[in-house]
Amino acid sequence: MSGLSASVPEFPEWPQFGDEERAGLVRALEQGQWWRVGGSEVDTFEAEFGAYHGTPHALAVTNGTHALEVALEVLGVGPGTEVIVPAFTFISSSLAAQRLGAVAVPVDVDLDTYCIQPEAVAAAITDRTRVIMPVHMAGQMADMDALDKIAADAGVAILQDAAHAHGAQWQGKRVGELGSVAAFSFQNGKLMTAGEGGAVLFPDQELYERAFLVHSCGRPRTDRDYLHRTTGSNYRMNEFSAAVLRAQLSRLDSQIELREQRWPLLASLLAQIPGVVPQGRDDRGDRNPHYMAMFRVPGIGEQRRRVVVDELIARGIPAFVAFRAIYRCEGFWLAGAPDETVDQVAARCPNVEQIHADCIWLHHRTLLGTEEQMHQIAAVLADVLGE
Score class of each variant (00 low, 15 high):
residue 67 A to G: 10
residue 348 R to A: 07
residue 153 D to W: 07
residue 76 G to F: 02
residue 148 D to T: 11
residue 319 A to C: 07
residue 156 V to F: 05
residue 310 D to T: 12
residue 321 V to I: 10
residue 205 Q to M: 01
residue 102 A to H: 00
residue 88 F to H: 13
residue 374 M to I: 02
residue 274 P to L: 04
residue 72 L to Q: 02
residue 298 P to A: 04
residue 235 Y to I: 01
residue 88 F to D: 05
residue 302 E to N: 03
residue 162 A to K: 01
residue 129 T to E: 04
residue 123 A to V: 03
residue 275 G to R: 04
residue 123 A to E: 14
residue 197 G to W: 00
residue 107 V to K: 02
residue 169 Q to T: 12
residue 81 T to P: 07
residue 61 V to Q: 00
residue 295 F to W: 06
residue 107 V to F: 08
residue 289 P to I: 03
residue 233 S to Y: 07
residue 83 V to P: 11
residue 326 I to T: 13
residue 50 G to V: 00
residue 49 F to D: 03
residue 202 F to R: 06
residue 102 A to V: 05
residue 69 E to R: 07
residue 295 F to P: 10
residue 337 A to E: 02
residue 233 S to A: 13
residue 44 T to G: 12
residue 306 R to L: 12
residue 333 W to N: 15
residue 321 V to P: 15
residue 198 G to F: 00
residue 87 A to I: 06
residue 296 R to W: 07
residue 375 H to M: 06
residue 96 A to P: 12
residue 300 I to F: 08
residue 252 L to T: 04
residue 13 E to T: 12
residue 299 G to N: 08
residue 274 P to S: 06
residue 4 L to A: 14
residue 156 V to G: 06
residue 179 G to T: 04
residue 43 D to Q: 10
residue 17 F to P: 11
residue 248 Q to F: 00
residue 308 V to Y: 08
residue 136 H to W: 06
residue 315 R to M: 09
residue 241 S to D: 14
residue 230 T to H: 13
residue 249 L to A: 01
residue 76 G to H: 01
residue 27 R to F: 09
residue 296 R to P: 09
residue 241 S to H: 13
residue 370 T to A: 04
residue 172 G to L: 01
residue 311 E to P: 11
residue 357 A to R: 11
residue 67 A to Y: 00
residue 217 C to V: 10
residue 374 M to S: 06
residue 40 S to F: 00
residue 89 T to V: 13
residue 64 G to V: 03
residue 283 D to K: 06
residue 51 A to S: 15
residue 185 S to M: 00
residue 97 A to V: 02
residue 169 Q to R: 15
residue 351 N to D: 06
residue 363 H to Q: 13
residue 112 D to W: 06
residue 211 A to V: 06
residue 190 K to N: 15
residue 66 H to L: 07
residue 375 H to S: 14
residue 220 P to T: 03
residue 58 A to D: 10
residue 117 Q to P: 04
residue 105 V to H: 03
residue 157 A to G: 06
residue 241 S to K: 10
residue 282 D to K: 06
residue 319 A to E: 05
residue 73 E to Q: 14
residue 216 S to H: 09
residue 164 H to I: 04
residue 372 E to Q: 14
residue 386 G to Q: 13
residue 383 D to I: 03
residue 104 A to W: 03
residue 188 N to Q: 12
residue 20 E to G: 14
residue 100 L to C: 01
residue 144 M to K: 01
residue 310 D to L: 13
residue 210 R to W: 06
residue 31 Q to K: 08
residue 300 I to H: 09
residue 227 L to F: 12
residue 363 H to C: 12
residue 165 A to E: 09
residue 308 V to E: 09
residue 42 V to Y: 01
residue 164 H to E: 09
residue 377 I to P: 11
residue 50 G to R: 00
residue 375 H to D: 15
residue 193 T to Y: 07
residue 135 V to Q: 08
